[in-house]
Design a protein around this nucleic acid. Structure first.
Lengths: 340, 340
DNA sequence: CTTGGCACTCGGATGCGCTGAGTGCCAGGG
DNA sequence: CCCTGGCACTCAGCGCATCCGAGTGCCAAG
């Protein structure tokens, strides 16, 4: 059904359309690409491609534009991730190298991705659930308030102010701190919460209320999805290049992008750092983003993915380029994280 | 020169223009407002106002729109901050009440401000420089790496990974931790850095390198402006309502908003929580924002302002409403912070 | 000083015809 | 059987002329 030349034509259409943003006709196509056949032949191929739903005409007597299905075929079969230039690689390396702390790494990654792809970039903070506890600290603030600080293996610091029923003597504090650490350090967060939950029993009856509050706060800090799954977003300026009709298309998009819950759904399940996921148009399960595509991949120290990062852009985007950038940034960030 | 009626006319023009976004003419003006005079009279007043530079016509035979100078007069003399509705007040209170930790407070404030004003909201994190040290913690990560955590009075946690030349024995660590805390706790950050800087001398010669690294990291964490002055931004979705011509006006605006340095300049010097600062059009000292206005105020526990928050919007904005919202949110945030 | 009246301006909406890129189809040739 | 040049047809976008009405400035009378 689809011989090689038809696939070539489809590829040419996608590439041209992504460049020019305009429907591409048979004549301009043969002019710009060395297809080796006449425009009439291309027209026939186009008719076939349209028949099969890979391309469409916005209106009669206009050029063709790729459909979602067409892009899908293009991404799956007609392109390999194109390697970044040396300059780009160096830019990534030096830009990320200077990062201080997890927050900084995430923010730099977002800006980097946005600049490289000229799309909207989204980076999820390393998920708490998969990382382990590195240290637990308790700090007295006032008589009735202590600050609980949890440091995770991803370098992330989670903090909670805890109200307690009465003053916490120094010795008890030291004891609780020590036991919390013995139980929790090295454990995955979920496991740590479990192990810690039995701690109050081992304390003197008088001390249990305080310890219980602390343990509860620990569990809450560790379990809380909303706090636990944060995302950074950047490159919103690039949004302007997306839509010409903007009351209809940009508004909901911008609104969606402010909802971090939506962003998390967009990023989806973390995949291994070596695979790049592409969702095109309707494949993105969010109505107001039906006119957008999402390119994501997982990242994290080692091979397992702690979190996801990626970009959102118009369906007509440079997929090979975006995929390459996402892939590269994920790799560099992963490396930085495993160093830290 | 400007009698009361002329001022009434100016006020009416500003209000109408803000509502309708269209140049307002003499006839529609007398229809919509009870000015008690005929359109011809209003026309004469308008001519006078234009003469003095408070209003202008986009083109001959069109209505008038306020100039920056006109808005300035309006804001200064023709309006008082209008009180928020009870419902709005309650919304603010409940929305901010549920916040957990400083990060959460800041993020909630941004969203709240954006929703209330339907503009772009900016909230600066409490500046480190003005807050004091509450606690310093040192955590061993590996033989050659420790994590330095500084908790400030504003509830903010600053962290730095420090490379050290060799392993740090437990007793030394405890000693350093204790002395760091004695020197720094309760001090303003800048002072703390100074006092801490002499610490290495009091240690045994062998231990000094390690202590010096830690002290340096402390100073860096405290001094670093870029890390120290962070801002959160939200409500970018409202940007769509700003400009009809958007390649020219929105693009630079969005770009400026991504530059946190620019945002900090926009927010400007923190003012007392009781005064609301309004900068209109050209008064905003950033070229790409010449078509925007900024409404800001300071906030912080107690009377002194730790940081600034505010909104950015089109010059034609509802100043009384925006000022009220900014004022109210700042007050509530301040209260929350002094509780925490 | 205010007001009704009047002539004038001009941006924006409406309507119309032309143009050219693009299409589908067909008959002839390798 | 597939490719190709040719041809008639379509139609979005443009340039241009026209019209409309909100808005203005000015003036003479109250």
């Amino acid at each position: 059904m689809l011989d090689d030349r038809k696939l070539d034509v489809l590829r040419a259409i996608v590439e041209d359309y992504v460049n020019t943003q305009e429907p591409v006709g048979s004549k301009t196509l043969v002019e710009r690409h060395r297809l080796g056949v006449s425009s009439a032949t291309v027209r026939n191929d186009m008719a076939a491609l349209e028949e099969d739903g890979y391309i469409a005409q916005p209106h009669t007597s206009a050029g063709r534009i790729p459909t979602d299905k067409g892009y899908r075929l293009f991404v799956d079969n007609l392109t390999r991730i194109k390697p970044l230039s040396g300059a780009e690689k160096r830019a990534i390396a030096t830009f990320l190298e200077g990062a201080v702390g997890l927050d900084d790494v995430v923010h730099r990654s977002v800006r980097l991705l946005a600049q490289l792809t000229r799309q909207i970039a989204i980076v999820q903070y390393p998920t708490l659930a998969r990382s382990t506890v590195r240290h637990v600290e308790i700090v007295t603030l006032t008589d009735r308030r202590v600050l609980l600080v949890i440091i995770t293996s991803a370098g992330r610091v989670e903090q909670r102010v805890v109200e307690i029923s009465g003053p916490l003597p120094e010795e008890l504090l030291a004891d609780v701190r020590a036991r919390l650490n013995t139980s929790a350090v090295g454990q995955r967060l979920a496991d740590a919460a479990n192990r810690v939950s039995v701690l109050p029993e081992s304390f003197h009856v008088d001390d249990r209320p305080v310890v219980t509050s602390l343990v509860a706060a620990f569990a809450e800090a560790v379990a809380d999805e909303h706090v636990g799954e944060r995302v950074a977003i950047g490159g919103t300026a690039n949004l302007v290049r997306f839509g010409e009709d903007f009351e209809s298309s940009m508004r909901p998009l911008l609104e969606a992008l402010e909802e971090h819950v939506v962003l998390l759904r967009l990023l989806g399940e973390a995949t291994s750092p070596s695979t790049v996921t592409v969702r095109i148009g309707h494949e993105v399960d969010h109505e107001s983003l039906a006119a957008a595509s999402v390119v994501t991949t997982g990242y994290g120290p080692g091979e397992e993915a702690l979190a996801t990062l990626g970009i959102v852009g118009p369906i007509r985007m440079d997929y090979p380029g975006s995929m390459a950038a996402v892939h590269a940034v994920a790799r560099y960030v992963s490396r930085i994280l495993s160093d830290a």
